[in-house]
Design a protein around this nucleic acid. Sequence first.
DNA 1: ACATGGTAAGTCAAAATGTCTGAGTCGTCA
DNA 2: TGACGACTCAGACATTTTGACTTACCATGT
Lengths: 130, 130
Amino acid sequence: MARTPQDVTEKELAVLQVLWEQGEATIRQITDVIYPDGETAQYATVQKLLERLEEKDFVQRKKAIPANIYSATIEREELIGRRLQEMAEKLCGGSITPLLTHLVRQRRLTARERRELRELIDELDPPRSR
Amino acid sequence: MARTPQDVTEKELAVLQVLWEQGEATIRQITDVIYPDGETAQYATVQKLLERLEEKDFVQRKKAIPANIYSATIEREELIGRRLQEMAEKLCGGSITPLLTHLVRQRRLTARERRELRELIDELDPPRSR
DNA sequence: ACATGGTAAGTCAAAATGTCTGAGTCGTCA
DNA sequence: TGACGACTCAGACATTTTGACTTACCATGT
């Protein structure tokens, strides 16, 4: 059947978001954010989520007393990169330009965004070529 | 539990790819591409895949003899758009610029790609602003 | 000593996904 | 005309994923 599981699931992402926000957090702190009136049950859910994230190496744990401290080992940027890469592979034969053109074309960018983007490209251009 | 199903799954995508290639196809034609030595069993699998794609309105069926003819009702571009949009919402608070900058920055673009991109932006700029 | 709060290590059910079976339909051609 | 082949319809099925939950256990401080 060989389904390919998601890199990070919906709820796992929620956990990551908290970690990205706070840098470090205990299970309880995360639970308080995601399930504002969380009981033991939800606490355990977060625990399991973290366990799975740790397995996938997206999160690391620092053993501590009174509670272990978790932190993300992957940056938001990196996750974005992975997903874009995956999309490119599955939908564009590995090329990312279709994604780019789509983004630029489809969504209306503000003048400011356009300017920034232009600057970004300029930055990348090897100096001698301009 | 409320898992959010994927818009298009792995195998469903494979089917769509064939339809995008060929424009139209019968189940058998699709099966021949995806499962080169496909038996009745695989034929049925493709059938089910198409059924689900039809439910989701990504594919339409033209009743015909001797075999129904299927075609995609969604363009590859549109699917890309959806996915990018979804990514933006889940990972970038709805903004697409992080995606853009990431793409431009992370992957090395060729000089040609950079030029094209620049032209694309120029196109979008309202004439009077330049 | 015992309540409190944390950890470890499962279990569980619903749904997704890919696969497959079997019965029925219909046109073609020997 | 009647058997054959190919197609369709409807559903069963197994495996995983995913989110949620339970329970036993451990440490600490009061």
